[in-house]
């Protein structure tokens, strides 16, 4: 289990080295996207329009940040992760078409995303739920914001980050999914525990 310090743009080769349980820190550009931004980006794709930012090699962050404006500068106050499963619907297309290499969120993602990550070379990195101050402190500046018409939490926030993490690689590009492994083990443990506390024979 290694610790890796990655810089964006991240190449497919670099991302393929990562395995579940590795810890990573990211320096460079991280872009927030929640449900609506995902939907809108895929609409752009269908209509043949270019996204306001090229996402190749970057990290996507499932996060609706709390920001405040100081003068004409945006400052990030809190940037905790949101539950990733809601983005399962879109993420395979996202990875395939925009070549993002790291998806950051909490709670894990499903089979569809795991397969796309294996096929196109990307990882899912879990950020501690609720650790919003820690995340915000690693964001050095807001480079820009797009699609603010979707509202502050749903907009594409473009962050310049330094050693953003620790992130735990929970889905790698080799078909491993830590959340699925854990839940399989938990089910097995549950049966044992039931026996131990006399709930089953």
């Amino acid at each position: 289990m290694g610790v890796y310090y990655l810089k964006t743009p991240i190449s497919e080769e670099e991302v393929r080295k990562l395995r579940v349980n590795d810890t990573i820190y990211i320096t460079g550009t991280i872009v927030t996207a929640r449900d609506q931004a995902h939907r809108k980006a895929l609409e752009y794709l269908r209509e043949g329009k270019a996204l306001p930012i090229n996402l190749e090699g970057l990290a996507i962050f499932h996060c609706g940040p709390v920001v405040k404006k100081e003068g004409d500068k945006w400052v990030v106050v809190a940037a905790g992760p949101t539950t990733s499963t809601r983005m399962d619907l879109f993420e395979d297309e996202f990875i395939k078409n925009f070549k993002v290499r790291v998806i950051i969120g909490k709670g894990g993602m499903g089979k569809r995303t795991t397969e796309a990550m294996a096929k196109y070379g990307a990882v899912y990195a879990a950020l501690t739920g609720g650790a919003a101050v820690l995340a915000a402190k690693a964001i050095k500046s807001v480079k820009g914001v797009e699609w603010l018409d979707l509202g502050v939490p749903e907009a594409l926030w473009i962050f310049e980050a330094e050693n953003f993490g620790p992130l735990t690689v929970a889905i790698d590009s080799h078909g491993n999914n830590l959340f699925m492994d854990v839940s399989k083990k938990v089910e097995e443990n549950k049966i044992k525990i039931y026996k131990e506390i006399g709930l089953t024979e």
Partner: peptide, 14 residues
């Protein structure tokens, strides 16, 4: 004790 033998762990990562 039973709950902590389940293995869910911090943030569900084991």
């Amino acid at each position: 004790e039973a709950a902590n033998k389940l293995g869910i762990g911090p943030m569900g990562l084991g």
